[in-house]
Design a protein around this nucleic acid. Structure first.
Lengths: 201, 201
DNA sequence: AAAAAAAACGAATGTTCATTCTCTTTGAGA
DNA sequence: TCTCAAAGAGAATGAACATTCGTTTTTTTT
């Protein structure tokens, strides 16, 4: 084939990333071999290497896109952009966020919680990946703070409460949901949200 | 040396585990080479292999002890065993639990959050490690449920609230603390607890 | 329809690493 | 003090794996 269009190239890259995600869900980044990615993608070794310089390059691409896909949506989901509606109660927001995470995974055909966990573990040990992922983590926190500000205005929380601190707790609930889903498997968005409601009285 | 006492053997194993933990904190399980463990432990390759059958064997030992060490203590910390004192408010409990996690890490000379994250990632992809870690995860949840029951009695939460659900949320707050500590680095037990207090009104 | 340029292929390569093996040292028991 | 079984050492081994390379296929362009 001669030089191929930029869109086709992007599609192929996406196909390789999708194959890698399926491998990573099963085996984690380090036990995922390029041979497995090659097989899962249906391409050949040489071909994969015309789209990505290295395995590490694929991982970086995942670190960049993976979270963004999930959380840009959460971002939009939560804070009721410039509108006249009040911010929803936190249990509703948490249910929506966790549910969205699962739905997006279904849509992509992968178990997003598992992949997210592997990605975080990589970020914890590889400064480059950490650097790639921090901005998105910050964006999630900011989205929650944005929500918290509105929720304070709406009287959901004590007037004078610190929105950044509230955002820390709400941000923290997501990994907790993911981890318990992996370790104990019994948490659902609805139950988790109900638990938060119980906690809030 | 001739056959060595069982205690001495246990000490040596501990020494190797401690060395491995230092490596894992830096590099994760898969990028930690046996050469690094050997160097960090101050022993020789042959020697390490007289105390552990394999690298995997060391990892299993960590999965077994790692969490147990942390959380058995949390377990004791939270629920005010058979006493006449009321259960503390949840923000106090969360502050104590997260603070304990950091303190124990300091005591062991490692960053426990990082190691915990690596361990969870392993559990997510290796069924054997998962099986090793599930009972402890369950124990943490149970400890929180135990706390929740007492806290409901003490009027901290709505009478009729479901203690198991509340336990899910409280359990979930710990990984959230750990992950934000690694990704954003700005969370402390005090701030996190204050955030929870704000959330609770 | 021929040429050219890039993609696809998959066997070959070289490196990294866990584990083993042989040799040496050690110290508890006789 | 001497013996010997076990521990300690570290070089050697072999398997696994990412990446490359020489060749073949494809399809746009002329």
């Amino acid at each position: 084939m001669p030089k191929v269009s930029e869109e086709h190239r992007a599609e192929k890259r996406q196909q390789i990333i999708a194959a890698t995600l399926r491998c990573v869900e099963r085996d984690g980044f380090h036990k995922t071999t390029m041979a497995a990615v090659v097989k899962e993608s249906g391409l050949s070794a040489g071909s994969v290497y015309t789209y990505f310089r290295s395995k590490n390059d694929i991982i970086h691409a995942i670190a960049q896109s993976g979270l963004t896909g999930v959380t840009a949506a959460i971002n939009r989901l939560i804070p009721e952009e410039g509108s006249d509606m009040d911010a929803p109660p936190p249990e509703w927001a948490i249910e929506a966020a966790t549910q969205h995470l699962l739905d997006l995974g279904t849509e992509l055909g992968v178990d997003l919680p598992r992949i997210a966990l592997q990605t975080w573990a990589e970020a914890a040990r590889d400064p480059e990946i950490h650097a790639i992922m921090v901005p998105e983590a910050r964006r999630i926190r900011d989205a929650w703070r944005n929500y918290a500000e509105k929720a304070i205005d709406a009287g959901q929380f004590r007037r004078g409460a610190d929105p950044e601190r509230i955002a820390m707790v709400l941000t923290g609930l997501l990994p907790g949901f993911i981890l318990q889903r992996i370790m104990l498997g019994d948490v659902t968005p609805k139950i988790y949200a109900a638990g938060l409601a119980d906690l809030l009285d």
